[in-house]
Design a protein around this nucleic acid. Sequence first.
DNA 1: CTCTGCATGTAAGGCGTTACATGATTTT
DNA 2: AAAATCATGTAACGCCTTACATGCAGAG
Lengths: 183, 183
Amino acid sequence: MTVAFALLGFLAGAPQSGYDLKKRLAASESLHWSGNNNQVYRALTELHRDGLVSQEVQEPRDGPARKVYALTRAGRGALREWIRAETEPPEFHSPIVVKLLGAQAAPAADRDAALAAYAEQLRVRLLALAERARRDADADAGAPPRRAALRRLIEQHAEVHHRAELNWVRSAQRALAALPEGA
Amino acid sequence: MTVAFALLGFLAGAPQSGYDLKKRLAASESLHWSGNNNQVYRALTELHRDGLVSQEVQEPRDGPARKVYALTRAGRGALREWIRAETEPPEFHSPIVVKLLGAQAAPAADRDAALAAYAEQLRVRLLALAERARRDADADAGAPPRRAALRRLIEQHAEVHHRAELNWVRSAQRALAALPEGA
DNA sequence: CTCTGCATGTAAGGCGTTACATGATTTT
DNA sequence: AAAATCATGTAACGCCTTACATGCAGAG
């Protein structure tokens, strides 16, 4: 799955500029792309070339031009077709698992320190996610319920996986502490 | 983080051939790399060039040559240094989240069908993971406890995230069903 | 006798990232 | 005066994937 579908997905909500789209991509934890210029602007020109989005250039008197994109009928069709196709399986990338594997060749203290630091990192991230969720919930207080529900679900996706990761780390710490050999 | 550290991690357990390593990579759900030839063999030659692994060519009378790699002292040092460095945050890639976003422009029936099919896919995968865990647990019955514990932790990582994903899908189904508008 | 497994490697290309580049406006 | 924000775009490169290529051995 490429970033193009994420862009179409955002445009399914409302027409918006490339700049808006890249900011949303960067801000979303569950849509894991970095939202870098090269990718977003290139993808948009290709989507436009292929007729899946329309482009309207706005030239305000001051500031740079904005190119506002919107789903075309063909774009909506492509999205729908993709949604009907089989969904690719998820992928969970966790460098700490690799570290755990490599820690066979390192002192147990290093391994334990890495686990502890990682747990702390996750805890902080979870707080940030909760904070963001609260702010966003306030922001779309008057929004239609479907939109609010969608935003909540996407935020919850990041949250549940971070929480699962943290729980897993804690269980790893317990399991390793229970091992007979100290080093 | 590159695949090189995963290879070093496997070699931290025991010396083995490129073929072994690529099979292990491919088999592991939590170490998400595909284990393709290009990547594995290339990474190993580079690790060897850089002195992080040693290479011993075995020429059996029949069949192709095996190149058995092992961690060198420098390799162990590099691994340890990496373990001490800050751990990169995890990334959770879930195409169904993107579909949910795009489903704003599609009939609710399509969206619900995608969610249901995805949930089923996850259920089957979870069964397969459990089955594999059982087989592996039998396999290293006589193995040292540290090794068995490590294997279990790595398998549990995949399992907990798949379970979290399935729970999230179910909560999404409930939340969307509770929405006022039918389409 | 064809297919699968063992075991190594290469070619071509896709997707994504960081960094560079421009230029105006707003904030500190 | 410096830095961040808006808004677009390009250059260079890294990691990873699929597919191709070779050759022997054992299973069906």
